[in-house]
Write a protein that binds this DNA or RNA. Structure first.
Lengths: 164, 164
DNA sequence: GTTGATATATCGATGTCTAAAATATCAAAA
DNA sequence: TTTTGATATTTTAGACATCGATATATCAAC
């Protein structure tokens, strides 16, 4: 669909009487959706993989010793039930394995298989290229400023979201 | 879950060898997810509504004359089939209605019911308060800069994403 | 008028994603 | 020891979300 429609976007729902903060938030959301949809469809078209599966593999690539389900859940900021489902899929595709934890019989350790690692590396390279393309219209200074401002936003939002 | 875990976040998947652009993108994503999850759970907890339904109602609030399904799909940047499902739910809750388009017998016009409008206004007010809270840790200048930089990002990404 | 291309919406299959409940384990207090 | 409370995961039910296919309607050109 991101292809089918020329796509007015989420941001249009901010009408002029809305608080500036609301417009800022909607613009943030619009950017993220735009990029995420683009990456999602390219991953699908070129590698036949979904974004969540790619994300889970990315976590494992960074942790060669493997990760527990709960750890994956925390890092991906999704629920445990979700991780179960995605892991099931990846296991069926032989891209990851579940090993019993030696210390804790409740826990699994999830690891990339050799094929999973090989496969991920190829996809990650393409993925990085796409991201570079998407940000290419900004100059170095703009990107750097954006990076810093988002740090401030993250701090601000975390303070609120963390309560409770 | 966003409450259950202290939440390391998506951004951690950028390890140092990654391109700066990749880290920038992951930080953007982390911020959006953080805020979106927070809003989602408050909408659920305080009003018993989901974010997609709220978003659809927000579009209709801005267009009192109603919108066609396809128009909703474009503005929300989701597929038509998706809009069909969300609309079905809202119709069942009597918050919106589907009317036949007078001009085009293929199309429906979706409108808020009076109750839907009333209900939405109350939720929107709270929603705006939450957003203001989430951005409160940034000063006015930072927010304004962020707003401008995101415009640049949107332009940049649209250029790439628009090509088919 | 018929044809052919396009547009609108729905449906079915599949895959996230959440919240809540169920199961199992662990660790430490009573 | 037993019980209690916290932790780790799975399961379930329901809601989103995509894609591809389908049914129907429109419109332009012939």
């Amino acid at each position: 669909m991101s292809k089918k429609h020329a796509a007015t976007d989420t941001e249009t729902r901010a009408s002029s009487e809305h608080a500036p903060d609301l417009r800022l938030w909607l613009r943030t959301l619009a950017c993220t959706n735009l990029i995420e949809n683009h990456i999602r469809s390219r991953l699908r078209a070129e590698f036949g993989i979904t974004l969540p599966r790619f994300d889970l593999m990315a976590q494992l690539e960074r942790s060669p010793q493997g990760l527990k389900m709960g750890e994956l859940s925390k890092r991906m900021m999704v629920t445990g039930g979700n991780v179960t489902g995605i892991t099931d899929q990846l296991v069926a595709e032989k891209l990851v394995v579940r090993e019993d934890s030696p210390n804790d019989r409740r826990a699994y350790i999830v690891k990339l298989t050799p094929e999973g690692r090989r496969s991920f590396r190829k996809m990650a390279e393409a993925h990085e290229t796409w991201v570079v393309e998407l940000f290419a219209g900004m100059d170095e200074k703009q990107r750097s400023q954006l990076y810093d401002l988002l740090a401030a936003l993250k701090t601000s939002a975390t303070k609120v979201a963390a309560k409770k």
